[in-house]
Design a protein around this nucleic acid. Structure first.
Ligand SMILES: [Mn+2]
Ligand SMILES: [Mn+2]
Ligand SMILES: [Zn+2]
Ligand SMILES: [Zn+2]
Lengths: 138, 138
DNA sequence: AGAATAAATGCACTTCTGTTGCATTAAAAA
DNA sequence: TTTTTAATGCAACAGAAGTGCATTTATTCT
């Protein structure tokens, strides 16, 4: 049993062929992926299957959804030990306006925000837009 | 000439009847509005007109678009003297998971974020989700 | 004012993303 | 092996965003 299979099973997700492939695909990419990316990469498979795979990953804490402001949902694998569901791994995301790629900056947590009286924070999303490392060094 | 007409003209936007009505509508609401909200409020007018009005407001610095993570674009009037276009009025937004309303917290600016070497920040979006003042006091 | 010009509006239609119902296939349990 | 459950594929639908073009309304020019 491979590492990936173990990871999936550890999150109560059956390690089907497709799921293993998608997990591998996401692990190899260093950027967040959209459904359309996966669609192009696995054109033989149906969009709904790929869609549901991402949702399954998300619901079981294998990946987290990223709203980078482009209007297109992206997904990235969670780091081992991350607790997205519990809103505890609130790292920020960076979206490059040049290459349109989005990355997790897992080392950069969202700072605590003081809210006006009466407001109760449960979650937060911080997206910084600009030029990514790759694009700025060209 | 009313205050609203003056404001519109100051931003090089012709004060048509529809635009004045929409501006008034947005000014009276204390929360960000979606296109669908305006559609319901002005059912006699066409969606594309309302859509283009919001875009015009946005392009001319009268209103700013808000991505609150719901997947539906919201808009709010800019405060006088705000410079959204220049990415200088980076206040945060609060989205209530109970009443689904989004508000500008214009007094709460987005804190400066240190990025890894090579990353160049141009803009930022911070949305805090939770329970709003109105909902928490019920 | 009246003609010419430009802008705003209304209508219809398209695209894109996300989402779901249901039949079929594959896997797991009994 | 039979029964049961889960995953996949197919075919739609929904909602939001966006656009081309004709028509109406407003502005400019003579
Ligand atoms: Mn992330
Ligand atoms: Mn705002
Ligand atoms: Zn880039
Ligand atoms: Zn609320």
């Amino acid at each position: 049993m491979t590492e990936i299979e173990k990871t999936l099973e550890a999150h109560q997700v059956r390690p089907t062929a497709m799921r293993i492939l998608i997990y591998k695909y996401m692990a190899e990419k260093e950027v967040a992926v959209a459904l359309t990316d996966i669609e192009s990469a696995f054109s033989k498979s149906d969009r709904s299957t790929l869609y549901r795979t991402l949702k399954t990953f998300e619901e079981n804490g294998i990946a987290h959804q990223i709203d980078d402001g482009t209007g297109i949902s992206k997904y990235a694998l969670c780091e081992s030990g991350c607790n997205c569901e519990l809103d505890q791994d609130l790292h920020l995301h960076f979206h490059c306006s040049n290459c349109d790629e989005t990355v997790c900056l897992t080392a950069h947590k969202i700072p605590h925000i003081n809210l006006p009286y009466g407001y109760l924070a449960e979650n937060a999303n911080l997206v910084v837009k600009g030029i990514c490392e790759k694009c700025s060094s060209e």
